[in-house]
Computed example of a mutant assay.
Amino acid sequence: MRFQARSTLAAVCAVALLGTGCGTTSINAGSAGGPDPEEICEGPTEDYTIGVSQANVAEPYRVRMNTDIRRAAAEVEQFDEVQFLDAAQDNSRQVSQIRTLITKQVDLLIVSPNEAAPLTGVVSRAYNSGIPVVVLDREINGDSYSTFIGADNEKIGRKAGEHFADRLLPDGGKVVELRGLSGSTPAAERGKGFRAGIRGSGIEIIASADGQWLRAEAQSKMDAILKAHPRVDAVYGHNDPMAEGAHLAARSAGRASGTEFVGIDGLPIPSGGIKAVQRGRLSATFVYPTGGEEAITAAKKMLIDCEPVPAKQTLPTRLVTPENAAKVYRRLNSR
C-alpha cells in the first residue's frame, strides 16, 4: 500500500470533517476538489488497498455486491487487500468506519451509503483528502466522488408502474407500496418513478410503508396493512425481499391468491427474485446490477492504468416475468 504520495495532503485535510478546498485536479470534473490523478496512479508496479464501506449485509443484494467486488478484485494482482466494513444500517457507524479508512489512508474507497445526507460529509472528506471514491447504488448529495455507478432507479420505478398499468392491473386496482429506507436515494427515486408510471391508469396506492429493504420488516408492515384494508390487488416492493415479505404476510392471511407481487433486484441466485418469479411468488422483478465488477474496473483504471473514469455510469436493467425468467437466470449465471 502507498502512503507517501498522499501523506501531506491527507494530514492537512484530516482536521476538517468536510475538507473542502483540498486537492488539485479532480478525476470527477464536476467537483471542485478531489484527488490528483497523477498522484493516485502508481501503475502496475505497486500494490493497493481498497476499503469497502457497505450500508448493510442484511440484504441479499448487498451480500452479492460484496461477492462481486471480491471476485473482481481477486483477478487484479495489484489489489493486495480489500477491507469490507458493514455499517448495519447505522449512519453513525458508517461515518465512523469511513473515517477509519481515511486514517488508514486506503488507496481507494468504495462506498454504498446507508442514507444520502448523513454520509455526504464524510465521503466528501475522503474524496477531498486525496482518496478516489467510487459510490455504488445509493448516491450522496453533491458530486464529491470520482464516479457513481448504479442503475436508473427512477426509470425502473416508472417501468414497474407501467407494467402494473399495462399488464397486471389494466382496469385499475388497489396497490400497496413497500418502500426502502426513507433517507436512501433509491427509495425516493423508485417511489417517484412508480407514481409517474401509474399516472392516469386508475391504480390507487392505498397504503405506503417503510420496509427498510428487509423481508421481516416488510412482512410485519404488510400484516398490519392487510388488517386495515379488506381489498389489496397488488404490492409494489422497492426490492425483492420486501415483495417476498409481503407475499408471506398475504399467504398467512389467506390472501396471496389473486394478488400480484412485484419487486426489484433480480438476483440470479437460488433465493433471489428471478427464482421467485419462476416459482410464482412474485409476478415480476427488475434486474438491478450490483455494480461490483464495474467498481473494480473503475478502480483499476484510476490506480493502475492511469485512465479517467466518467462521473456517472448508468447500468442496464430489464423486466423479468414468468415468460423470460429462466432465460434471464441462465444468461446472468453464464457471465
Rank of each mutant, 00 (worst) to 15 (best):
D90G: 03
D68G: 09
V106S: 01
F79N: 00
Q78G: 11
E115H: 09
V133C: 09
V76Y: 06
I69N: 00
V133P: 03
I102R: 02
S124D: 11
Q83R: 13
N114W: 08
T100Q: 12
D68V: 07
Q89M: 13
V82S: 00
V122A: 03
L109F: 05
R125S: 15
P113K: 05
T103R: 15
E77F: 11
G130V: 04
N91T: 12
I102D: 00
Q83H: 11
A116K: 08
E77M: 12
D68P: 07
L109M: 09
A72K: 05
T100K: 11
G130Y: 04
D107I: 07
Q89S: 14
L101S: 02
N114L: 10
K104Y: 10
Q89C: 10
D86F: 04
Q94G: 05
D86E: 10
V82K: 01
R70A: 14
A87G: 09
A87N: 01
A73I: 03
N66W: 06
V82F: 03
E81K: 14
N114E: 13
G121Y: 01
E77Y: 12
S96N: 13
N91W: 05
T100M: 10
A126I: 00
R71W: 11
P118I: 05
S129D: 12
V76W: 05
Q97N: 09
A88I: 12
R99F: 09
V122I: 15
P113T: 06
M65L: 15
I110P: 00
F79W: 03
I131F: 03
M65F: 11
Y127D: 10
A126Y: 01
V111N: 01
D80A: 14
V133K: 04
E115F: 05
V134P: 01
V123L: 07
V76R: 10
S92R: 12
L109Q: 00
F84R: 06
S124K: 14
I131Q: 04
P113G: 08
Q83I: 15
T67F: 14
N114K: 03
N128Q: 12
R93H: 08
E75T: 14
P118H: 06
Q94P: 01
Q78Y: 08
L101D: 01
A117C: 10
Q105E: 13
D86Y: 05
V106L: 06
S92T: 13
A126C: 10
V111T: 06
M65P: 05
I110L: 15
V82Y: 01
S124E: 12
V106Q: 02
N128F: 06
L119R: 02
R125D: 11
V95G: 01
